[in-house]
Amino acid sequence: MIARFKDLCLDAADPLALGGFWARMLDGDVADAGDGDTRVDPRSARSPAESIWVNKVPEPRVGRPRVHLDLRLADPEPAALLAQGARLVREPDDDAGRWVLADPEGNEFCAFPADANSRPGPFQLVVDALDPAAQATWWAGVLGGTIEHGSTTSSVFGAAGFPWEYWVFDGVPEPKTVKNRLHWDVELADPEPMALIAAGATLLREPLDEAHWWWILADPEGNEFCAFAPAPTG
């Protein structure tokens, strides 16, 4: 294991407003993260990795999102989410028994009907991929876990630190062309990301200063992620 999953980060034009929206979606609290950023902490979280950092960026959202969360509803339909500000993008159909919704800045996410065997809230992270099997294999090599292959998807479960049921890589025909608005962070096993780079990650940026003390890297299909040195112990 080279690293463990740390948390999610969401780009935003207005972190306070978008953080408030996601706090309503996830039954969470909004914390001031400094520098105009916020953090959403779900009240029912079983791990700090379920928090979402909402970070201010100058550029608007462009193109279709390649990373999104799937949520399990508490009710048969998403009326409560729509009442809290979500926008309906697509109703369920014969091929997909889920609603596609969007937040106020246009970031899409999926809502699935209530399930007696699953708690409400996020249950999987979905990433578009040209080669789902290769992507799942690469990330399982980084974080550990077991891979399940489907006809058009490959999923990782049991990855170190990953707080939800599945990490799904969903096959799509188009390559990544723009920066992801939603990305994940990892905590390294070693003080520097040399093992990640040796495994095939691309280094995009070194730590800048004491306030920006993480590395920015990309996986083999160009998905950006941040890598943090291990937290001090003792």
Rank of each mutant, 00 (worst) to 15 (best):
A83D: 11
A86Q: 02
I147N: 02
T137A: 15
H183C: 07
V127P: 02
A129E: 04
P65C: 02
F162Q: 06
L101W: 02
K176P: 07
A116Q: 11
Q84Y: 06
H68L: 11
D170S: 14
N180T: 12
A116T: 13
P163M: 01
C110L: 09
D93L: 01
G145A: 01
W164M: 07
D95A: 14
D103Y: 05
P163I: 00
A140W: 03
R98W: 14
A79Q: 13
H149R: 15
G158I: 04
G97E: 08
F123A: 08
A134E: 03
D103N: 05
L125M: 07
L69K: 05
T137I: 08
L101A: 05
F109T: 00
L81T: 02
V172A: 05
P78A: 02
E77N: 10
R72V: 03
A160K: 10
R66G: 09
S154W: 08
G144K: 03
L101S: 07
T152E: 15
F123C: 02
R66W: 05
L71I: 00
V172C: 09
W164Y: 12
G141K: 08
A140F: 02
P76L: 02
E165L: 13
W138F: 15
N117K: 15
L82R: 03
T137V: 07
D131G: 03
A159T: 06
R181G: 14
A83C: 02
W184T: 04
D131M: 05
V89A: 00
T146N: 13
Q135K: 11
G106C: 01
L130D: 06
V127M: 13
P173R: 12
V178F: 10
A159F: 04
A160E: 13
T137M: 10
G145P: 04
R72P: 06
G97I: 04
L88W: 04
D131K: 09
E108Q: 14
E91Q: 13
E105R: 01
D115N: 15
L88R: 09
G171Q: 13
W184I: 00
L69E: 05
G144E: 08
A129G: 05
T177C: 05
G85C: 00
I147E: 11
A79T: 12
L101F: 05
T146P: 11
A136R: 07
F112C: 07
G141M: 04
S151P: 12
D94C: 03
V156Q: 04
D128W: 05
T153Y: 15
C110H: 10
L125A: 01
L81M: 09
R66T: 10
A140N: 10
R90G: 11
N107H: 15
N107I: 03
P132W: 01
W184A: 03
A96F: 14
V156G: 06
R87T: 10
